[in-house]
Amino acid sequence: MKLNTPSKLEKILKSGHIAVTSEVGPPRGSDPDAITKKAEMIKNYVDAINITDNQTSVTRLCSLAACIRLKLMGLEPVLQMVTRDRNRIALQSDILGAASFDIYNILCLSGDHQSFGDCGSGQNVHDLDSMQLIQTVRRMRDEGKFLGGDDIGRPPQMFVGAAANPFADPFEIRVPRLAKKIAAGVEFIQTQCIYNLDKFEEWMKLARDRGLHEKVFILAGLTPMKSAGMARYMKNKVPGMDVPDEVVKRLSDIPKEKQAEEGINICIESIERLKGVEGVRGFHIMAIEWEEKVSEIVKRAGLYPRPEV
């Protein structure tokens, strides 16, 4: 087994285990307990924890500081980094800052447009895009060079990830786009939340037809629905989200107080089905403000205990 970095996530994936990751969204304030409490809840059930970077463009405690908190707890963070808020100086600088705390995983994203958040009248940066950020981290790691060409003292050692959304349009380029990210140097993918399993399987098939499943580790993204209302909201209001009518119906057909439980059931059934899809190498469980459910999902989906590597 050839490892490119000291990342535990990389080791788990390359050892052939099904990986499980989850995420913690930092608070809208400076209380570190908000991070550590959520992390405590999930830490025994996942291999690595993503920290979101001002998700949906709402200003929050920074991803890097929250990753450091996890590191201090002895956990394995995945630093999410969007290109919306930082130019190439700040991106490279934050990567080095993270590397100085031995943060070994990064997820390169473009980020939602700022109009979704609390600073709609702000500028966006987008000096690089997510594809180019992948290239940047790989260059910093593999060549030990800054974008400007100078040498980096103690280059970062990061396992490089990105997102993929099989459900955004146009569908026909969603696999070519994955290929493009692989060519840019991405090593693992965490997908958008999957509710339309048929479509996801079609995407995976097209990826397999090109052998892409052997070039990148694909972690299937899942978010349990808390209610029929949430399902409707995700279906109608969140761009790039594909929630089939059956999912909305299944939740709305049962009494309100049972819907959350049904949401968990759907999530677990999805994991069971996706385990059988060739090329799915793990699961990324995004239980948004519902971290207490991660343990149940992981256990009931047969993903517990987590491997020791």
Partner: peptide, 26 residues
């Protein structure tokens, strides 16, 4: 492109429209 992405489209592109506004072409 609302994010001037040079290697797009982003994951928000929906039915030919941009994630920021359903009236705007992606």
């Amino acid at each position: 492109c609302a994010k001037r992405i040079l290697n797009g489209p982003c994951g928000g592109s929906t039915k030919g429209k941009c994630e920021i506004n359903a009236e705007l072409d992606c």
